[in-house]
């Protein structure tokens, strides 16, 4: 009976709301990122000049904010797209679990990649 199908699908407010929050953070972070890196300081990137930039707390804050926000925003966006193509019930639980694993792995990988600059 379709009526029963209609009853399923609770929740959804937090993914939607957090997508907006991270969107605002990304509008700030990516503007800083693009303008500072690719317009004002255009030139060849090297290990050293990235390290110089990451010496300032402002850029460490912005870059880590970007990492967290962009991974959440991207994977939540993928989820939003995939849910439009018939992910329901156990398939949906599996999708959510897979996206959490990918997200945590991506953030850990990102921090691991940042680390040499922060300790240098």
């Amino acid at each position: 009976m379709r009526q029963e199908v209609l009853r399923k699908g609770e929740g959804g407010v937090w993914p939607w709301f957090l997508q907006r929050i991270t969107a605002v953070l990304l509008l700030y972070g990516l503007t800083v990122h693009l303008v500072v890196l690719h317009v004002l300081n255009i030139g060849r990137l090297t290990f050293d000049n990235i390290g110089d930039r990451l010496g300032s707390g402002f850029f460490i804050f912005t870059d880590f904010l970007l990492l967290f926000a962009v991974v959440f925003h991207g994977l939540n966006g993928v989820r939003m797209v995939l849910l439009d193509y018939g992910f329901a019930g156990s398939k949906r639980t599996a999708l959510d679990a897979a996206l959490v694993v990918i997200g945590v792995a991506a953030i850990a990988y990102g921090i691991w990649a940042f680390w040499p600059w922060l300790t240098d």
């Binding site: 990102g110 691991w112 990649a113 940042f114």
Partner: peptide, 9 residues
């Protein structure tokens, strides 16, 4: 992310 990792590591 993987390019950043490749350049730093």
């Amino acid at each position: 992310i993987s390019v950043i990792a490749a350049s730093s590591r």
